[in-house]
Design a protein around this nucleic acid. Structure first.
Lengths: 194, 194
DNA sequence: AGTATAAAAACGAATGATCATTCTTGACAA
DNA sequence: TTGTCAAGAATGATCATTCGTTTTTATACT
């Protein structure tokens, strides 16, 4: 069997598991449910994954990776809009998959007790933050004529707060019954500095 | 047995369960671990709670309630600082219990798949938001001379973003290895409008 | 006060269900 | 024919919950 086949099958399993996890959570989802969702047998699944924990990690990885992929697309695309517009684009991309925010929140919640997951989430965050630091710095240099050092300092200070806009969106869209995403994005762009 | 005794024992159990949940998560914590942590037997625990789900809900409630209690203390106390200073106080109060942010994140993650928990979290959020709307509105009326209607509109728009500062703190302090809470708070006050 | 009695509460071993994982068996591709 | 993969029943462990028993507590009575 070819490598290509292997990874295709892993994707098949991971997608089924992701759907099941989304419904019941990581811990409360049984292997039997993943088997039912994927239509595969225990043997087929254990041929691809070491165990349930292995699947959980792979799915969490996928969910996080998707956010980084969106970041890459943004980087390749834009001229130089305000940082808040970048955050808007990031959130819009994420929210285009309606289940993505809740899934991210599930992963973060799990990371609170799983060191491996915490490390993965931390790495993803650091990549995100670094990209924002560089972007904010660049934007302040061009737009306000700051020196690279001054601009970097601004980026380091502000990047975590721009990312908080993402975190707030994730939490509120999952938890708040009457959450209005569009109004949230408008308020963010009005509030964050330019 | 008096009602007082009953609630004292429930508190005893809930505190033990909370400690265990913090370590292993809600689902992965077994009744045996709650028994060990509390030093009580199965019978004693099942006399107070209907089952594990009952304990989970009670503990999640406690974790959320503590945040509302802090809000009440703030309301009783302050003259009229800027809204961002209120958010700082809220976060500082929360972070004074070092495990509180991670616990909140666990609850929110669980709420993504548990409708009862989601409803509870939603209610807590809505009272938080309402308090902030009123506060921001009041502050804008006094500080910038806005009419009540104008000021209310500002409050409705901005409150979710002020709360995002809390959500961002919760997520980042749990997930980010080198998170600097003090710098985060300073940046927030510098960034949010006055 | 001291003791008997009844009720409540706690104990902890037993139970039955669920679950992750393994392993034997059969099918299929090379 | 041989080696790989999938199937699915079997296994053994874990877990929430129950329940018969013991202990404690409150109360009534002498």
């Amino acid at each position: 069997m070819t490598d290509e086949y292997r990874s295709a099958r892993r994707a098949e399993i991971a997608e089924a598991a992701q759907a099941a996890f989304r419904r019941k959570g990581f811990q409360a989802t049984s292997m039997a449910e993943i088997m039912a969702e994927s239509g595969l047998s225990a043997g087929a699944i254990y041929n691809q994954y070491k165990g349930k924990a292995d699947i959980v990690h792979d799915v969490a990885n996928r969910i996080s990776r998707q956010r980084l992929d969106e970041l890459d697309e943004l980087k390749a695309q834009n001229p130089l809009p305000a940082p808040s517009a970048v955050v808007r684009a990031l959130i819009t991309a994420m929210a285009s998959d309606l289940t993505a925010p809740a899934q991210l929140l599930q992963v973060w919640g799990e990371a609170a007790t799983d060191p491996d997951l915490a490390e993965m989430c931390g790495k993803v965050y650091l990549t995100m933050r670094q990209a924002h630091i560089e972007y904010i710095s660049l934007w302040h240099q061009r737009e306000h004529g700051l020196s690279p050092e001054e601009a970097d300092a601004v980026g380091v200070a502000q990047a975590p707060l721009f990312l908080s806009a993402v975190h707030g969106y994730v939490v509120q869209s999952t938890i708040v019954p009457d959450f209005d995403g569009a109004a949230y994005l408008d308020a963010m762009e009005a509030l964050l500095p330019r």
